[in-house]
Simulated scan of single mutants.
Amino acid sequence: MATILYARVSTIEQTIEHQLMQAEAAGFRIDQVVADHGVSGVTVAFKERPNGKRLFDMLRGGDSLVVRWVDRLGRNYGDVRDTIQEFMRRGVVVRTVINNLTFDGASTDPMQQAVRDALIGFLAATAQANAEAIKEAQRGGIALARAKEGGIKYRGRKPSFTHRQLTTVREMDGQSVGEIAKATGLSRQTIYRIKADPVAAESMLANWAT
């Protein structure tokens, strides 16, 4: 039975050697390393990558696929979930270096299967959420850099509420979010953000002179 490390390297800061070193330091005995270089985990599905596709031909029942974390498989919820499920159906054990998680299809107990599948879904969703957060931060950094180059004050994201709406939210403190939403016309998500940090909400309005 083989133990194969799959490494996905999408930026110059990431290296195969680093991922292999982490795996070995965690106690994994790696027989072979398979890697995809310069491949986005967001837009390119696992089966569409040259070596991702190759792994489905290489791995057999009883073999282990090791990844640093599930985001090496991808950063798309559906793709990561389906990839792990497909390997388990083939009898391949998927293991992560971080948190030392193990996913296999050995359990026949429905409760254990449900817990396992829920964890897979959570990790897959986290991988996508992290990618979206990184992308948003990059957009903010680009906007800030452009503003500085043009001598323009960076104001951040434009608020989706007015001073009157903010005042109403604060005055209705203690009432349900549904009631506040009905009174202001704001979404529940916006109301939650305002209630969580009213000072930041005031600052946003001040930056945009709304």
Results as ranks from 00 to 15, higher is better:
6 Y>I: 09
7 A>M: 06
10 S>C: 06
16 I>Y: 12
17 E>A: 12
18 H>F: 11
19 Q>H: 13
21 M>E: 14
23 A>D: 06
23 A>C: 00
24 E>V: 14
24 E>W: 11
25 A>E: 05
28 F>R: 07
29 R>E: 10
30 I>S: 02
31 D>R: 10
35 A>F: 11
35 A>I: 00
36 D>V: 05
36 D>C: 07
40 S>H: 04
40 S>F: 03
51 N>R: 15
52 G>E: 00
53 K>P: 05
56 F>Q: 12
61 G>L: 00
62 G>N: 10
62 G>Y: 14
62 G>E: 10
62 G>H: 12
67 V>T: 04
68 R>I: 12
69 W>C: 10
72 R>H: 07
72 R>G: 04
77 Y>P: 02
77 Y>I: 08
82 D>C: 05
83 T>W: 04
85 Q>P: 05
87 F>R: 06
87 F>M: 10
94 V>H: 06
94 V>Y: 01
95 R>G: 02
95 R>E: 12
97 V>T: 04
98 I>S: 09
99 N>V: 11
105 G>K: 03
109 D>I: 08
111 M>S: 12
117 D>L: 07
117 D>F: 07
121 G>F: 05
125 A>W: 05
127 A>I: 04
128 Q>F: 03
129 A>Q: 15
131 A>K: 09
131 A>Q: 10
136 E>C: 07
143 A>S: 08
149 E>A: 12
150 G>N: 13
152 I>P: 01
162 T>P: 05
167 T>R: 15
169 V>L: 10
171 E>V: 13
172 M>F: 14
174 G>C: 09
174 G>T: 03
175 Q>A: 15
177 V>D: 14
177 V>P: 03
178 G>C: 13
183 A>E: 03
187 S>P: 07
190 T>Y: 01
191 I>Q: 04
192 Y>P: 01
194 I>V: 13
197 D>R: 05
201 A>H: 00
201 A>N: 04
203 S>W: 06
204 M>Y: 01
205 L>Q: 02
206 A>W: 03
208 W>L: 01
210 T>L: 15
